[in-house]
Design a protein around this nucleic acid. Sequence first.
RNA 1: GCCCCCGUAGCUCAACGGCAGAGCGCCGGGCUUUUAACCCGGGCGUUACAGGUUCGAGUCCUGUCGGGGGCACCA
Length: 496
Amino acid sequence: MPQRGDELLASRRAKLERLRGRGIDPYPPRFRRSHTTAEAARAFAEAEAGGKPAPEAAVAGRVARLRRMGKASFADIEDSEGRLQLFLRSDALGDGYALLDDLDLGDFVGASGAMLRTKAGEASLDADSLTLLAKALRPPPEKFHGLRDVERRYRQRYLDLIANREVHETMRARSRIISAVRAFFDARGYLEVDTPVLTPVAAGAMAQPFETLHKALDRKLYLRIAPELYLKRLIVGGMDKVYEIGRVFRNEGIDADHNPEFTLLESYEAYADYNDVMRLVETLVPQVALEAVGGTNVERGGEVIRLAGPWARLSLHDAVAERAGVNLDDYPDAASLAERMRSLGVPVTYAESRGRLIDKLVGTFVEPQLMQPTFLTDYPVEMSPLAKASPADPRYTERFEAFAAGMEIANSFTELNDPDVQRARLVEQEELRIRYQGEDLDRMDEDFLTALEHGMPPTGGLGIGVDRLVMLLTGSRTIRDVMLFPQARQAGEAEC
RNA sequence: GCCCCCGUAGCUCAACGGCAGAGCGCCGGGCUUUUAACCCGGGCGUUACAGGUUCGAGUCCUGUCGGGGGCACCA
């Protein structure tokens, strides 16, 4: 099947064969570089400042630009750290200059020589040898406009990385953020653990799971939607402070801040409660920001978001009363609340539970306004089956979610540790799912309930969406920009 | 799952229903300090795919595929 652009590929293949004909291996096994591009430039600048002779260097990278003249040329090569100009002269390279005839943009080369400042003032490597390290058989994206095609940016991320250098910096920031989060928990004596990704019950959150099959056991398994219930088993077992950073999978829609697989941080600390966790979060986020992006202020839509704590605290009840004008206590059941929301113009059906209605109310009137970091606290019990009820008012729980830039970034509660109450709450959720969503999936994790019956100490738990934290700290507008290989949107699977 | 928008050269983009174009890239030639190098010459294309309307379709219509945005879903 002939492809478009065949001539371009044929031209590169012809060069490949010519090189082989000249006894040049287009894919040599190694090249020893003495400096990265950035190191070479730095060493040169230091030598100049100290009045020392220009350093020798062996550098390597991908040819990003090529300015050919008759007997002298310039090639800009790129590695992960930056770009360096090679000054290639016929009299310095001798026969090696002929390599330029078969060199294309995108090829990898190595070069050695002394650093030199050109007439135009650019630090360059005055090459006395030039070696082909890998021939590129396909052309790189256009050098000036870069790669704009969103589909290819994500599906062929390597092209995006070649053409759009800022992607490298976002991913480095992501790596620094995760390292800083680890360092934060490690320094506080938390143990990092790994719990199962393949699980017999899709529990710990409400999302739809991905299913798979274990052949030898002939058993259906689910990719985890949250590590929560396993981490609590560890608290039961006496591991008092644990955390996990791992991938979870939710079979739900894809949009600017949802991807089917994403990275979730969860931590649990025995003898802590949700107030302790609030202090943890408002310490963690600014500290990570400082270490990973160099400051605690980030910009979002022209507004400066100040991450330094302490953060605002606002009860969900008061937030809804203030911003939606609805006193939740006046609408104790789903039907009356749905009626009230309709009068506010919120599109609701009567086939929604009270918890879901409140969630919609908060999502419509409260969350989008929470630009500065805010803890929204004391969620209604219907929305929080794993959280301990407030002793002062059992209609609410000791739970908070943290918002910044209008985005949920953390969820936490004083964990429910009464096994009988926990069972009753989970049974209630099962009934709601069957009644409102027609879901027949068994979500009861009996082993977890057994663990609770062995006794779990009072515990404060936390979940943070790591990708959203990276979005917040890097100013990214979509979750796809902070994940290297986001899921393509793709319409539903073929029906037949 | 629903609604709206988009798909043209390798890349970035033009083209009133009337001969498919430009810049970069690429190919040939020139050039020993360039910076999106420059100069001369060359369009390299199944206009996503399949049908339809029309004298004539990149453009209008239907469907399919892919993408983007919004809604729904995500306790």
